[in-house]
Design a protein around this nucleic acid. Structure first.
Lengths: 163, 163
DNA sequence: TATTAATAGGGGCATATCCCGGTATTGGAA
DNA sequence: TTCCAATACCGGGATATGCCCCTATTAATA
């Protein structure tokens, strides 16, 4: 109707990456606005959460980057404001001086607690309109994509099998 | 099993925004790598696609930003490199001098054609491992989130109804 | 008509994200 | 032991993203 009828349907409106990024922008907006009172962005909250979750075994920067599905450099850049504000601290490892373990400071833990209560509001707000079960399912799907090793590489050879 | 048993389950590992952003980073990585030969990023390709799709009625910046689920400022910033490289052009409207219509240049259309063939590879690569029907469904879900007006606002009052 | 309100964009600022190349450290090989 | 490859992190550069404030233009109102 609105699109050229084609069984192969190469319409760019079908772009999975575009849809993912649009949804990401929209949802991030709401989470960011909800977290605003504590001064954290959604990404910063995600990072603090992951560090807190591993408080018994502080991850190295590479380990944390992997867990965040984030480039090592990106994580490094993202940690800087958190370190500047005294929420996290980096500690060189004795076993390997190249490693830097990331851990929460007392101030960081307090900030995280505040953020966590705000985060629940955002979480409820979304699941209230979207549906909790649907959210659970969607999240699993998304985390599956995030961890998919098949996506870690580019198409080695053009897939022209479509004839 | 892996999480503290709680019916309310406030575990941050359940964060929908985090999952969305992780998946977005991962998938963008693959699309970016696949588009690399033409020199466009996935966001730039998305923008050019939307402009091309509306070539018969070039959108204003605000209209384009809405379609992209993107902040007006963000779109403005993103258009700069495209304009600098001569792929798009801005044209002030006669009806309202505040409006600036965005349209593809000849060079931009050529670039888009090249990018489109690369995009299909990325699209096939993803759908090949993820499944085409699943992708169709996921995309609809994501675009629904992107367009959800309920998410356009922050939780006005904390939802503590969880007791 | 004159004032005021609303709208469209632009500029600056801060974070987010990735790539590339460089440095320091470590472990293995000659 | 010395050299070399691999690994962990860092710094710079470019785009991505959103917020706030400012200006220009238009629309609404007194």
């Amino acid at each position: 109707m609105t699109q050229p009828s084609s069984q192969t349907s190469y319409a760019v409106s079908r772009c999975n990456c575009t849809a993912l990024r649009k949804a990401s922008r929209r949802l991030s907006l709401m989470y960011d606005a909800t977290l605003a009172p504590c001064g954290l962005k959604s990404t910063q909250f995600s990072i603090l959460s992951e560090i807190e979750r591993r408080h018994d075994k502080p991850p190295t920067m590479s380990e944390l980057a992997d867990a965040m599905v984030m480039d090592r450099s990106t994580l490094g850049h993202n940690l800087r404001p958190l370190e500047r504000d005294g929420l996290i601290a980096l500690k060189a490892a004795d076993a390997d001086r190249r490693w830097k373990h990331v851990h929460l400071t007392k101030k960081g833990l307090e900030k995280y607690s505040h953020a966590h209560s705000l985060w629940r509001e955002a979480q409820h707000h979304f699941e209230g309109s979207f549906g909790r079960d649907k959210a659970d399912h969607l999240r699993e799907t998304l985390l599956g994509i995030a961890a998919d090793p098949a996506l870690a590489s580019i198409p080695s050879q053009p897939i022209v099998s479509q004839r």
